[in-house]
Nucleic acid binder design. Sequence first.
DNA 1: TAGCACAACTCCTCAGACAAGTTGAGGAGT
DNA 2: ACTCCTCAACTTGTCTGAGGAGTTGTGCTA
Lengths: 222, 222
Amino acid sequence: MEPLRRAPLADQAAELLLARIRAGEWALGQKLPGETTLAPQLGVGRSTVREAIRQLAGRGVLASRQGAGVFVTALDAREDWDAVLLRSGIVAVLEARAAIETEAAALAAARRTPADLRAIRRALAGRGERRTEIAAHVDADTALHRSIVAAAHNEILLELFDGFTPRVRKAMIEMLRIRADFGSDSDHAAHEELVAAVTDRDADRAASLSRAHLRSLTEALT
Amino acid sequence: MEPLRRAPLADQAAELLLARIRAGEWALGQKLPGETTLAPQLGVGRSTVREAIRQLAGRGVLASRQGAGVFVTALDAREDWDAVLLRSGIVAVLEARAAIETEAAALAAARRTPADLRAIRRALAGRGERRTEIAAHVDADTALHRSIVAAAHNEILLELFDGFTPRVRKAMIEMLRIRADFGSDSDHAAHEELVAAVTDRDADRAASLSRAHLRSLTEALT
DNA sequence: TAGCACAACTCCTCAGACAAGTTGAGGAGT
DNA sequence: ACTCCTCAACTTGTCTGAGGAGTTGTGCTA
């Protein structure tokens, strides 16, 4: 009759501390009460408090310095990321993707190597092929955009882009089922322009073209 | 003659365990040796081993079940994010942050509410105070930037910003120890301009000011 | 063979002791 | 009056020893 086995005290203490941090009891960079103060306050032993602190330290919320104290290093332990993407609307995702892609396009224009250009052109050619399946078309488009982000040579931006695409893919496919002005010539011309800007090392034009493209996409999905 | 203060034993033990996990010594889902075995093997006490395990548990690598043992739950420590940030150079992080902040500044200019403006002005005032401690100054600056990102009303961008700041914080503080042109009047004026642009709903100016600020910061750290 | 008691493991928690680092107050010297 | 130094109080770090609680597999019993 005990389907819930209660969590260890250390885990409970960690959750409790995190809640109090989130509530703003201690601001970012501020010091927590000492372990010897916290322990009786939470009703556990000192070692347990230490394990709770270690746990939060592993999540990047706390950092302890010997002799000085324990300090808050982040207001929030990044919750699962995927959960954030799912909870947020598609517009928010596209705005974030626009932020990534415009910066990446500018960097790509400055840093692209010949090998990058080859990969981009290959992706552009693949995108140009007329496809019957919508999903395949979306994936080809995504591959082109990804190759440009990769040419920026910034691992973080690429990682972010990859995190967004799965979420965007569904919405894109659904949209194209309704309004199919996707494979249009004007749309493809816009992409060729973007590739040309990267090739010519024109960072500003690459950024603004990228921004314009994402913006029109956002409006189409609204 | 020890400019590098060595990390606590628990941290070292955690790193060591993570290395052995990455090396494949214990497969995913497999059980680690008991604490009493691990402790003498690593040359530390049991409580230290426990703290190391807690730390890795907080990062999602290990999970312990009372009576059963400690098990590997992920081959890679949330490689998703923290590891990427740590592995990447500070320049890459700042470039990503620039991407986030410029877009956020533009959105903030369009969407800021009176309540947002109050929060931003409060943060600006806090940043203006002359502070003796470098860390406090960096945190006050971060708080201002965060308030602007928050005014964009895009949860993803805010989440990303919060993910970057802990990593940037260290580098900023170290830099300011060397060149202290941080609290300068010109620097503060630039921030006032940015706030003014958001207040005036001038998205383009907010974006370019934000981009310029992050770029100068990147160059200072190079 | 099926079921059960139990012993040997495991992690969990506490308490106490001492080491090592940090900080700020207060005194000595200028 | 100011600077520098000493030091005491406080902080986290580490180890040890002692039980408590849960899990697992062995081997006995029916």
